[in-house]
Design a protein around this nucleic acid. Structure first.
Length: 549
RNA sequence: GCGCCAGUAGCUCAGUAGGAUAGAGCAGCAGCCUUCUAAGCUGCGGGUCAGGGGUUCGAAUCCCUUCUGGCGUGCCA
């Protein structure tokens, strides 16, 4: 908010001086307070294009800027920085704006662009695991923030309910079912799904239908088992996500897509574009012509289709539905997949720059200081549900978004189990609860004003008060940056900084003081606004903002 | 072999997309509760930003290269 303001002032000054400003300059909060409240590199960056040395240029700009009374002091430093010291009145004015705005930080920056966020999209062959949980928290937070800054995003889950893996699932279920009926199945196949949940499914099916499945012809039987397993597991996944606060606008089934004939469509499009060929009884896509490092099989030699074809079809439906940015959030094992889907887009003459891929690196679970090895196939996984029941939704979501996407994430279960305050989410929530408590106390002592006024805002002059205002003023620009760069972790950093300033302020000043009601009102107004801003951040992260702890 | 990602304090990680003296939390040490929640605050110590070159007024950040770790390199998804 203030950065934008200063930036505009600098541009105005440059314009009146008839100086060019092609290159982008920045306004930032310097880490050394000696360099002022804000600082810009404008003169350094624009020196070249104006053919002046930075110091001279800075002097001209400063002379012009000094006409503005909002600045207590504007200085020039060494190579050509311009440092601003702001008058408290500017902070107070900004604070008043923040206070008045109920949806503070929101904007129309995204211009209503339709963005599709596809994430989780796990195989419906088991309970959701930790990586899916990370994807869910990450994708959902990006969704919330993009929406808040004016995009028109949608969340979508692509269900891989066709193909090889679900066949194996059905076979695994059948084996477990036979086991229940006392058949000796020998060693459980390596490829099959070993998880306990398959046994649970078998028992459930047995209770519902008994031996009826075994009377069916093999093909019908597997189909039946598949349908049963899929619907059960999908429901399970949906429940897990809902418990995690993640709801999808769309669930797109691969099976449905296939039955609508889009597979044939894509195949014929690619053939028409002359980029398929036959080799070894299979049909190939010559993706190498479009930047892939290897050609890809479209139709296997047994006549079945690879997952790639319906996936291309699925991405094309996104375009047909009017989305102009397609963001796929993937686990670390999918990056080899990018060149081939881009290749398909190019081959079919679609602009592949609307595709964007975000890769979340793996999550390592630590228990008793040791890494827990996980394998879905072997049934050794820590599920999303387990995690939530152990550490809670808030802590889980917070941890998952607190790291940037392409960094590994170490999750120490034991630490989380301790439920002590080593968790930064408590630090932030505690700050919020503290404010609520102070407000409660003020109300009980009849020191909470009926209305907050601009006069009250103007009494805030302590450095700690101005620091809180400065931090709050950062939020609108920050949210835009987060949306543009898809980096939700920066919101947790921000919230921790805001909470820290609040705790410091709390320790140093008494807020509710019957001896000076006027000052009490001003400070309550500040805390009330901090609480609102924190509440907005929590909401954007899908984390609760507790009134007391 | 090739491709992608990462390497910052003892540990977990930030670092405002090239800015000034690289920051937090935890762990360690020393302090602060008859006053609004001590789940908090104050102070101290801790660094060859993996190594080496380059680009420029200026590099943790961009380019090249080496090393280390993770992942990928299926007619699985």
């Amino acid at each position: 908010m203030i950065k934008q303001l200063l930036s505009n002032n600098i541009i105005e000054a440059l314009d009146t001086l008839k100086l060019s400003h092609e290159k982008e300059f920045t306004v930032e909060i310097p880490n050394n307070p000696e360099f002022g409240d804000y600082s810009t590199n404008a003169a350094l960056v624009l020196g070249k294009e104006n053919k002046q040395n930075p110091m001279q240029l800075a002097e001209k700009i400063v002379k012009e800027l000094k006409k503005n009374k909002a600045y207590k002091k504007v200085e020039i430093a060494k190579p050509g920085f311009i440092n601003f010291h702001l008058a408290p009145s500017l902070y107070q004015q900004v604070f008043w704006e923040i206070y008045k705005n109920q949806e503070y930080g929101s904007s129309d920056f995204g211009n209503g662009e339709k963005v599709l966020l596809e994430f989780v999209s796990a195989n419906p062959t088991g309970p959701l695991n930790i990586v899916s949980a990370r994807a869910a928290a990450f994708g959902d937070t990006i969704y919330r923030i993009m929406k808040y800054v004016g995009y028109n995003p949608a969340r979508e889950f692509y269900i891989n309910d066709a193909g090889n893996q679900v066949d194996i699932l059905a076979e695994s279920l059948e084996l477990r079912l036979r086991e229940i009926h006392g058949e000796k199945i020998g060693e459980f196949p390596y490829e099959a799904y070993h998880g306990e949940y398959v046994k649970h499914l078998a028992h459930r099916l047995n209770a519902l239908e008994g031996t009826r499945v075994f009377m069916m012809p093999e093909k019908d039987r597997l189909e039946h088992l598949k349908e049963f397993a899929l619907s059960e597991l999908l429901e399970m996944q949906r429940n897990s996500l809902e418990k995690f606060g993640v709801v999808f606008e769309g669930w797109v089934s691969e099976k449905t897509l296939r039955s609508e004939g889009v597979v044939e469509e894509v195949l014929s499009y690619l053939t028409e574009a002359d980029c398929t060929y036959e080799k070894e009884d299979a049909i190939w896509f010559c993706s190498t012509k479009y930047g892939d490092d290897k050609d890809r099989v479209l139709m296997k030699s047994d006549g079945s289709i690879t997952y790639f074809v319906p996936d291309v079809a699925y991405h094309l439906t996104k375009i047909q539905r009017g989305f102009t940015k397609l963001i796929d959030i993937f686990g670390p094992d999918h990056h080899g997949y990018v060149p081939r889907i881009r290749a398909a887009f190019r081959a079919l003459n679609y602009d592949d720059s609307i595709l964007e891929f975000i890769f979340l690196q793996q999550v390592n679970i630590f228990e008793s200081g040791e890494r827990v090895k996980m394998s879905k196939r072997a049934g050794k996984i820590v599920t999303m549900d387990e995690l939530i029941s152990v550490v809670g939704k808030d802590a889980a979501r917070y941890f998952f978004i607190a790291r940037k996407a392409n960094a590994h994430l170490n999750f120490d279960l034991e630490l989380a189990l301790k439920k002590n305050n080593e968790n930064p989410v408590y630090y932030c929530q505690y700050a919020h609860a503290r404010i609520c408590n102070i407000i409660k106390k003020a109300r009980s002592e009849k020191l909470f004003p009926k209305h907050f006024t601009k006069d009250m805002a103007n009494k805030l002059t302590k450095p700690e008060e101005l620091a809180l205002i400065q931090k709050m003023a950062d939020l609108p620009e920050l949210l835009i940056l987060i949306a543009v760069h898809r980096e939700p972790h920066r919101l947790t950093t921000y919230l921790e900084e805001l909470a820290s300033l609040l705790h410091h302020y709390y320790e140093r000043y008494q807020i509710v003081n019957p001896k000076s009601p006027a000052l009490t009102h001003s400070r309550l107004m500040l805390l009330f606004t901090v609480k609102k801003v924190m509440g907005i951040c929590f909401e954007l992260m899908g984390i609760s903002a507790p009134e007391k702890m």
